[in-house]
Amino acid sequence: MEDIVIIGAGTAGLSAAIYARRAGKKAVVLEAMTYGGQIINTPDIENYPGIKHISGFDFATGLYEQATALGAEIKFEKVTGIKLSSDGIKTVKTSSSEYKTKAVILATGAKNRPLGLDREEELTGSGVSYCATCDGAFYKGKTVAVNGGGNTAIEDAAFLSSLCKKVYLIHRRDKFRADAADVEKLKAKENVEFILDSTISRLEGDDTLTGIEIHNVKNAVKQHLDIDGLFIAVGQIPDNSAFADVAELDEKGYIKAGEDCRTKTPGIFTAGDCRTKTVRQLTTAASDGAVAALAACSYCDSTEINS
């Protein structure tokens, strides 16, 4: 039997693995895709205390190597659910196996929110993108649109404006969640045009995106735009439906837990972006990983489950 099964090998999950191993607990990390989580798409991290500059890939690889060197086992399996039994043992089921454990840490993270339009998935990689820094280089000298009103959307539009001929910023309101100073800076750019109070109602093009239809939410007027690329930056969504029976979820699907990272089930903890919280950053993910791991360690020490 394991002491702690950690679900998700992003910053929160790998930080938890480091703390669990250093406390002498057996820990296995289960990951459906690859280690590192969302940060691997970020070229430059400049806000992690103690590290002036590092790429997301190097940061993630450092975390992975640190966790595995300490003896954490990382397995690439998709978790399908958790079964609780009356003796307190949790059985974590994956697509190919199952793990009995005393404690579980849910560190499932969050992923980019799609717009939910017809053919959006099919056109992803063929004109539709969720990562301006990853894919922007392929749109040099072309016309693109960014959809969203948060910091990511504004940063993406600013980044793309230095490469592209023309950048439209489409936002469903006329006010921004993004920092006002950054919005003003973007407005001043000659090749950026704001289209406010508007949503995207249709993606156009056969094999690749050639344009979009825009719907003005105030006057219901529809408008067509010819674009080569659409960058979607409308926030993140969690994916915790497999755990709804062992942890309480809020209306958006985040796992309800306070700063102590405890869920409603004793022995099941949660860490990182998948938890209800206001600030989702690398530092808060790492912090949650430590808090959840140490809470899980003391749960293992106090529980009467025999291994």
């Binding site: 590192g36 798409n41 790429s55 890939f57 990853c134 280089a137």
Partner: peptide, 11 residues
């Protein structure tokens, strides 16, 4: 692939 692309280096 490209050297600046994190997911490429993972793949």
């Amino acid at each position: 692939w490209a050297s600046w692309c994190g997911p490429c280096k993972m793949l």
